[in-house]
Amino acid sequence: SLEELLKLARHALRHGEEIHVLDRVITDEHEIKRLIEELERLI
């Protein structure tokens, strides 16, 4: 769900981890922040 993805993204950002989204691995902090902003808009 989007909520789950948002939780994962926030966790990854906090802990400096990578996040796997739709067969992509996002490691860049700015990309993760952008993902979080997009998800928050959708929810």
Rank of each mutant, 00 (worst) to 15 (best):
H11Y: 07
I43F: 06
I32E: 00
E40N: 04
V25D: 05
K7W: 10
K33N: 07
K7P: 00
I36L: 03
D23I: 03
T27Q: 10
I26A: 04
R34Y: 09
R10N: 08
E40G: 03
R41P: 01
I26W: 13
R10F: 09
K7F: 09
R34K: 14
H20L: 10
L5N: 01
D23N: 09
E17R: 11
R34C: 06
R41Y: 09
K7M: 11
A12E: 00
D28M: 09
H11C: 08
V21F: 14
S1V: 13
I32T: 02
I19W: 05
R14M: 14
E38I: 13
I19M: 12
E4P: 02
L5K: 03
I19T: 02
E40W: 07
D28F: 07
K7N: 10
R41L: 08
S1E: 13
A9F: 10
I19G: 01
L2K: 04
I36N: 00
I32W: 02
E37R: 15
S1T: 12
A12P: 00
I36T: 02
K33T: 09
H15C: 05
A9P: 00
I36M: 03
R24K: 11
V21C: 06
L35I: 08
E37M: 15
L42I: 10
S1K: 15
R10T: 05
H11N: 09
E17K: 15
A9S: 03
E37A: 15
E37F: 14
A9Y: 12
L39T: 03
L13M: 06
E37W: 14
K7E: 14
L13Q: 05
R10P: 00
E37D: 12
T27Y: 08
E18C: 09
G16A: 06
V21H: 08
G16R: 10
L13V: 05
D23R: 02
V21Q: 04
L8R: 14
I26G: 02
E29W: 12
H20S: 09
I43Y: 06
A12S: 03
A9W: 12
I36G: 00
L13H: 04
L5G: 00
I32Q: 03
H30I: 12
E40D: 05
E40Y: 07
I26H: 04
T27P: 02
E29M: 14
I36Q: 00
V25N: 05
H20W: 10
L13K: 03
H11F: 05
D23S: 04
V21I: 15
E37I: 14
I36D: 00
E40P: 00
L13C: 02
E4W: 12
R10C: 04
L6Q: 01
E3C: 09
H20K: 15
T27E: 06
R10L: 14
V21K: 02
R14C: 05
V25T: 09
L35S: 00
I36C: 05
R34T: 12
T27L: 06
L13E: 03
R24L: 09
L5E: 01
L39K: 00
L35M: 07
L42R: 10
V25S: 06
R41T: 08
H30K: 13
L2Y: 10
I26C: 03
R34M: 13
E29C: 03
L8F: 07
S1A: 13
H20A: 09
D28V: 07
R41A: 10
G16I: 03
H11S: 07
L5W: 09
E3S: 07
E40A: 05
A12Q: 03
H15A: 10
H20V: 15
L39Q: 00
L6K: 01
E18G: 14
L42T: 06
T27K: 14
I36K: 01
H30P: 07
E29R: 15
A9V: 09
L6N: 00
A9I: 12
L6I: 06
K33H: 08
A12R: 03
L8C: 03
I26E: 01
L5Q: 05
L22P: 05
V21A: 08
L39R: 00
R41S: 07
L39N: 00
L5T: 04
H11G: 05
I43G: 02
T27V: 12
S1M: 14
H20M: 12
H15Q: 08
L35E: 01
D28H: 09
I26S: 02
H20N: 08
R24W: 09
E17H: 14
I19S: 01
K33R: 15
L22K: 14
R24P: 01
I43N: 02
E18T: 15
E29Y: 13
A12F: 03
R14A: 15
V25Q: 05
L35R: 03
